[in-house]
Amino acid sequence: MILKKITAVILMLFVSVLSFAQSGKKLDKIIKRDYQIIECTISKVSDKTVEYSLPGETLVISLDVSQIAKIDFASGRSQTFDVSAGNNSSSSGSSTIVAASEIKQNTIAVLPVPYLNSDTQESSEDMAKFAQNDLYNKLLDKSSNIFPLTVQDLRTTNSLLHKAGIDHNNIDETPIEDLEKILGVDNIVAAKVSYTMNSGTTATTYNSGNAKISDNNKKVKTNDISTTTANTQVYYYYTVYFDMYKNTSKIYSQTRKPFLAVKDSWIDSISYLLKRSPIYTKK
């Protein structure tokens, strides 16, 4: 009787451990062309379909590869799909490039701007978009200074990059010739902001006092009161990388460190480098 109870307890523990292991299992991700993401376990990939099952289910679902843009496997490997090219899939490292229908001459695209903390190697998606938008607006404001170039709409740029599975994290790893094909432009501006942070504390002391006259010897006595205030200042040390390409050739490459170590000083460096680029002419 006791043996049966021990066996039952061991069986329950085994089932619990197995369930926990399965629940903590890293899943594959299917990114569809309509931007829907499916977290699942993929069992088979063929030229026409991908078979997978959802977490906690044994039912196998089949999905046509024409609906799939990319698969991120739990192992870390990625696979992109391009049905229109007649070659439905390719592994990462030799990804199929989904090219635009044509290259628009005298058109410049602004890439997402990686914004990287050099100490932690953490990249901010929000700041990457903000920096990209800032550079894009600077080009629009100076459209007369970059004639005959026209700036590709930012939504178009980001949509095409998204479909190709490219963002601020892997934009540096993608060859410029591939980016020009994906975006359909013959000019590209690529910037990157790298920074480190430091902090310093300064103390300021204020003195105040009340003077009193002694009744006996007429000496002056002072009761001093001192107040010390500590101020902590955060310093940002930026390095801004700025590159321009035309027909896959690099036509301009500069690096600049802002003079001031304040939070938004990188913006001034972007403006400085843009105005000295070969596409900019003074009016």
Results as ranks from 00 to 15, higher is better:
Ile68Ser: 01
Thr228Asn: 02
Thr248Ile: 02
Gly93Asp: 09
Arg77Pro: 05
Thr227Leu: 03
Leu116Gly: 05
Gln233Ile: 11
Asn88Asp: 01
Ala131Tyr: 05
Leu63Val: 01
Val15Ser: 13
Thr156Val: 09
Met244Trp: 04
Lys25Trp: 10
Gly86Leu: 02
Met127Glu: 13
Lys5Met: 08
Gln121Ala: 10
Ser269His: 09
Asn247Gly: 06
Gly24Pro: 07
Ser159Glu: 15
Val98Pro: 04
Arg33His: 08
Asn198Cys: 10
Ile10Met: 04
Asn198Lys: 15
Val65His: 12
Leu160Ala: 11
Asp172Ser: 04
Asp64Met: 09
Gly93Thr: 08
Ile68Phe: 03
Val234Tyr: 14
Leu149Gln: 05
Asp126Val: 11
Phe20Cys: 06
Ser66Lys: 15
Thr41Cys: 06
Thr58Trp: 13
Lys138Tyr: 11
Arg256Asp: 14
Phe14Asp: 04
His168Val: 03
Ser199His: 03
Ala128Tyr: 00
Ile61Pro: 08
Val15Arg: 04
Ile270Pro: 07
Cys40Pro: 00
Ser101Thr: 10
Asn210Trp: 03
Tyr237Lys: 14
Lys48Val: 07
Ile182Met: 07
Asp119Asn: 11
Asp126Tyr: 07
Arg77Ala: 05
Val98Lys: 15
Val50Pro: 02
Pro148Asp: 06
Tyr237Gln: 11
Glu177Trp: 12
Ser124Asp: 01
Lys181Cys: 01
Leu183Ser: 00
Asn223His: 09
Lys212Leu: 15
Pro148Met: 10
Val110Trp: 00
Asp119His: 04
Val45His: 11
Ile225Asp: 15
Thr58Met: 13
Arg77His: 10
Ser16Glu: 09
Glu57Asp: 12
Val113Phe: 03
Ala128Glu: 00
Lys181Thr: 04
Gly165His: 04
Lys5Ser: 12
Trp266Thr: 01
Leu149Trp: 10
Val185Met: 00
Lys250Leu: 07
Asp72Ala: 07
Gln121Glu: 11
Ser123Pro: 01
Ser101Phe: 05
Leu18Val: 13
Gly93Trp: 02
Ile38Pro: 05
Lys181Tyr: 02
Ala100Cys: 02
Ile251Asp: 02
Glu102Asp: 03
Tyr35Arg: 09
Val60Pro: 11
Val83Glu: 14
Met1Phe: 02
Lys104Pro: 00
Ala190Cys: 07
Asn231Cys: 03
Asp172Phe: 01
Leu139Lys: 05
Asp141Tyr: 14
Glu125Ile: 06
Glu122Leu: 05
Tyr136Phe: 15
Asn210Leu: 02
Asp28Tyr: 00
Phe259Pro: 06
Lys104His: 00
Tyr136Asp: 07
Asn210Ala: 05
Val65Cys: 07
Ser66Cys: 11
Ser208Met: 00
Lys129Leu: 12
Ile31Glu: 04
Lys246Gln: 12
Ser123Gln: 15
Asn223Lys: 13
Ser46Cys: 01
Tyr136Val: 03
Ser53Ile: 12
Gln36Glu: 14
Thr41Glu: 14
Lys104Cys: 00
Glu125His: 05
Asp153Lys: 07
Glu39Leu: 08
Asp47Thr: 09
Gly93Cys: 02
Asp268Thr: 07
Val240Gly: 06
Lys283Ile: 12
Arg155Tyr: 14
Lys282Phe: 12
Arg155Glu: 13
Ser66Pro: 01
Asn231Glu: 09
Met197Asp: 11
Ser159His: 10
Asp268Phe: 10
Leu154Gln: 14
Gln67Ile: 06
Tyr136Trp: 09
Arg276Cys: 07
Ala230Gly: 08
